[in-house]
Design a protein around this nucleic acid. Sequence first.
DNA 1: GTGAAAGCGCTAACAA
DNA 2: TTGTTAGCGCTTTCAC
Lengths: 341, 341
Amino acid sequence: MHKRATITDVAEKAGFSVATVSRFFADNGYPVSSDASKKIEKAARELDYTPNIVGRMLKTNSSRDIGVIIPTIRNPFYPDVLLGIEKSAASRGYQILLCNSMRDRETEIKYINSLYQKQVRGIILASAQNNLSYENLAGKGMHIVNLESDDSCGFCSGIDFDYRLGGRLLAGHLKDMNHERIAFITSPLTKKSRQDILEGIRSIYKDRVLTVIDNRETEDETGIYEYQMGMRMAGDILKSGKSITGIIAVNDMTGAGVIKGIMDLGLDVPGDISVAGFDNIDLSSMISPSLTTIDQPGFETGKLAANMIIDLIEGNEIKYDRLEPRLIIRASTGKAGGKYD
Amino acid sequence: MHKRATITDVAEKAGFSVATVSRFFADNGYPVSSDASKKIEKAARELDYTPNIVGRMLKTNSSRDIGVIIPTIRNPFYPDVLLGIEKSAASRGYQILLCNSMRDRETEIKYINSLYQKQVRGIILASAQNNLSYENLAGKGMHIVNLESDDSCGFCSGIDFDYRLGGRLLAGHLKDMNHERIAFITSPLTKKSRQDILEGIRSIYKDRVLTVIDNRETEDETGIYEYQMGMRMAGDILKSGKSITGIIAVNDMTGAGVIKGIMDLGLDVPGDISVAGFDNIDLSSMISPSLTTIDQPGFETGKLAANMIIDLIEGNEIKYDRLEPRLIIRASTGKAGGKYD
DNA sequence: GTGAAAGCGCTAACAA
DNA sequence: TTGTTAGCGCTTTCAC
């Protein structure tokens, strides 16, 4: 393996100084004569030279990577977000450092520190526990965009999504279908988004909503936590004999698990129980019955988040629209007692 | 935002030279007295110092990032692979730079170049077109692990997976179920893995397999290409009136689309047509009917790939097991003409 | 065990 | 328009 050519090699071969070569490659409007440009271009090509980003980074103290921390890439909502982030980021010359926290606080902190050491200037966080201490990140020049509307983080920015209204729309839909008592199945209420959905549901169902919280949020490679959690919790509710005719799941992946859990018990969805999810991932229209849900556009969210974090990094002013929830009615919800119509 | 502390700050505060501080943080067995260690540790803590990886990288010319290029993160097979990569990588101090090529050759090349500029020393490629020119990467010290058994790349390493046997197992299963003529639905045969599956099928069905190739592989944000392709191709076959009783899809995502396409036409799976996929992603057991498939363990593949690329980077000797295909029989396949039994 | 000093590849004053 | 030069923060000889 031959040594990589450096800017000095190119300068020598082209017969110009490193400064001129640097200017040529920086391509930032600083004048370089066309004669110089031609010779430098030629020398670079012959030497197979390409600038070393690390040298540039050390000098300018500016990384073009952005960190993205999510719970797990196995919930398809996050790939959607990620694709959106990548699209915006790529168009502005940034790249993604992906981190799956696996819902583990230690891992999350480790990743944040590691990103900081790598001189990353901005992190998109979709995983934070509500009261995660951000380790003085702000004072150290780190920018954070929080995707879970965690307002306990004073200095964070975030994409506005009205989780409360989402919950309300879902609850309203079930109410319209004459469901008297419903359940809300969720992982721990350690994220504001989850709390907000519940609040929205309660704004309609008051105390007629049974909140079923799984207390052992933990992700590993053997399965998808949320799906399995949905299955398990659905089974628990049904076996408990509670008089429930509708279930809202905290997200689609959980909702898919809930449907599976119900069907495994020989019951029908929505004949016996209606089920709704949250997110509108592709999966929700691939399963049967297809899942009623709230559309939370992951791709759009990602695009906005990337633009926001880059604006923050580059010191521009920020101004963004919010994303609005939209109710998507599919086959998994129906009239209460519909089976016996 | 206050300035970040550097190694010099720590050295001054601790009353030692930068060399000693460097040795303390390098933590590579070079002796540092416990007195020095204590003082340095204290000074670093008070200054909130953490080493600047970029400075280290420039000096040592060694990045601890590995590039991962995949077609699209929206096919859940890749998240599985990615999680495996991340697990092995993290345990060895490496991190992932994620790149979705969106099945676009230009994008792929752009990413490879960008990774090279960032001094990345190894790339895990799961996206390469068969005859992608690797742009002299090897000579430049870049290591490649190819996940699609592309043997046109002389110097690449890869994880062994017997796609041909996988195809053969699937075909054998359908044969056992008395299917006389089947179809193979696939994206373009530009990857060796796809060709191998077809070969495996042909080893059993000879000329009694109708190969249906979609000729416009292209991914965008509006949907999942493979799923939609499966739907479309399934519809085309059925409407063409060909006497087919079984379909093998090039992967599960396509297979899910095929099932959807068949059902949309009012036909039954497997009553009218049997369908099989390839990969055994979680989705394949979430849909109805659940999908018969070949287990290709993405997580394991990812772990092996990461270990392989890191071994390559670190100059260790390589030796790895291969992964074997395993037939998973589910509800989407049944006896030919089974509906009328 | 410790320190001085050179230099990794690059950028950006400053001078010409 | 171009060149000289001083570092960015770190590691690593080499000397002590």
